[in-house]
Write a protein that binds this DNA or RNA. Structure first.
Ligand code: NAD
Ligand code: NAD
Lengths: 225, 225
DNA sequence: GTGACTTTGTGCATCGGTTCACAAAGGGAT
DNA sequence: ATCCCTTTGTGAACCGATGCACAAAGTCAC
């Protein structure tokens, strides 16, 4: 059923996709330090993963290594970047310019990859019209217009939880299919829309769970229940 | 090999632990709206998961439901909170009080669960001594002293990448074993220390990957390679 | 009390992901 | 040109997580 001339699978496992940015970061560091080639062992160590996993991950993109030598750093950077879609630049809008939205807007780490903050949108008339990180904050009434005008394809939600679903619905209404959500709510979206969530509070709760285990775990049997 | 009187397994799967906070959030919302009992079906919908998964998750904590009825909301809130260690309060230190650290310090969402921001620490003499969110920013030289004095058990790292490993080593040196890392570096830590990382840029890259697939996926075959 | 109905808790098949371990591939020395 | 050494790419076993499907358990109406 499958032509043998097909070099790539065109179906990269989700777990692999999530690690590619890690490899990319490690490779960038190596490129800066003038390292030309790297073995799977070394790259895996730099990315904090097992070397067999790294090799299997990379094998999903194609056969870009040289046996006995390793991987060419520059070439691998290019291949991973292309696979992730970082060879084009992505216009991102941040909706909700409060504590968090502001921090994100001022963050330089986005631009360094192919992401460009193209719009800031808020509902508070006090904030609308301000210039933050060189961008004018636009009114939420303009949401749809701004997204279309600036060619935004990824929306970052940093509004209060109560407003998140409504904003989400509206941006989906104008064709956005990629959303990064910081509000502590489960967004309901139609098929075909990707939502990734970052929830600080959940991370802390997971840490607390393990911390409790480490500290009082074995003791807890005393209460009998 | 296993006593049947043992009510709980004392070995909750990691995937389950990661979802418990989600259930807890949904339950809190229901408690506020005066809902007394809830079925696995409804709770699962509110948390955005499959109901069989929810039931299996909860079954790891014990048998807290009533067949034919569902789960008592208040009781389940208590059981999950206890399991996650949220019945005690956790002192958190934020190291690196820049854009992001400030946003975190001002965020109310921590306190609402059992987390209390107990200390802010930075290296910049311009910032040290300032009061942010009602807390005095302390100097990084005082790091170890502050952690011990305030009983900090969870550290949030919001320094630049270059400083993260050093700060990490130092807090581990005074007994901290739970770290939430925002800096884009792989931290190397000894056995027994938990690190969770939040990396914005990785989330965007994952979204970009899928966005690219949706947009140009089938077209990409044209380049032949 | 009885029977119909609801909903939990879980055994089981399945799936995706991880890890091991090694044959195949290539480079470089002689 | 041949051999040795290094390192990749991957088959296969393993492991944890998911989801189906249903028997067991409990409620509620009468
Ligand atoms: N600050 C943090 O560290 C942090 C951490 C985790 C999660 N969060 C979550 O991120 C979100 C933002 O947090 P924050 O601390 O920046 O809150 P914030 O109150 O400082 O900012 C929210 C901003 O959203 C704007 N807004 C409100 N309704 C809007 C609407 N309908 N459309 C557009 N903008 C609207 C407000 O005017 C405000 O500027 C919240 O959901 C919060 O729970 C924040
Ligand atoms: N701001 C964001 O939205 C964002 C998003 C993703 C990741 N990050 C990461 O989070 C970290 C912080 O980002 P930011 O935007 O707040 O940067 P920032 O430069 O605004 O803040 C960093 C702070 O750390 C302090 N610092 C430097 N060295 C220190 C040391 N050795 N000990 C203690 N404090 C020290 C600095 O004085 C500064 O106040 C960075 O690693 C960044 O890559 C930030």
């Amino acid at each position: 059923m499958k032509s043998p001339s097909q070099p790539r699978d065109r179906g990269i496992p989700e777990a692999t996709v999530a690690r590619l940015p890690l490899y990319l970061r490690a490779l960038h560091g190596m490129a800066e330090r003038g390292i030309a080639t790297v073995s799977s062992e070394d790259l895996a160590a730099a990315a904090g993963v097992n070397s067999a996993k790294l090799r299997k991950d990379l094998s999903h993109l194609g056969s870009y290594g040289t046996r006995g030598v390793g991987y060419d750093v520059e070439y691998l950077v290019y291949q991973i970047s292309r696979e992730l879609g970082l060879t084009q630049d992505w216009a991102v809008a941040i909706v909700g310019v409060g504590n968090l939205g502001r921090a994100l807007a001022n963050y330089g780490g986005f631009v360094s990859r192919g992401f460009r903050v193209a719009a800031l949108v808020d509902a508070d008339p006090e904030i609308v019209g301000d210039t933050i990180a060189g961008l004018n904050v636009e009114h939420i009434d303009e949401l749809e217009a701004v997204i279309k005008r600036r060619g935004v394809s990824i929306v970052v939600l940093a509004t209060p939880a109560a407003a998140a679903q409504e904003v989400c619905d509206r941006v989906i209404g104008v064709g956005v299919t990629s959303i990064l959500n910081f509000a502590p709510v489960v967004l309901s979206v139609p098929e075909g829309v990707d939502v990734r969530k970052v929830d600080l509070s959940i991370e802390l709760q997971i840490l607390a769970f393990h911390e409790q285990r480490k500290a009082g775990g074995p003791l807890m049997a005393v209460d009998g229940q």
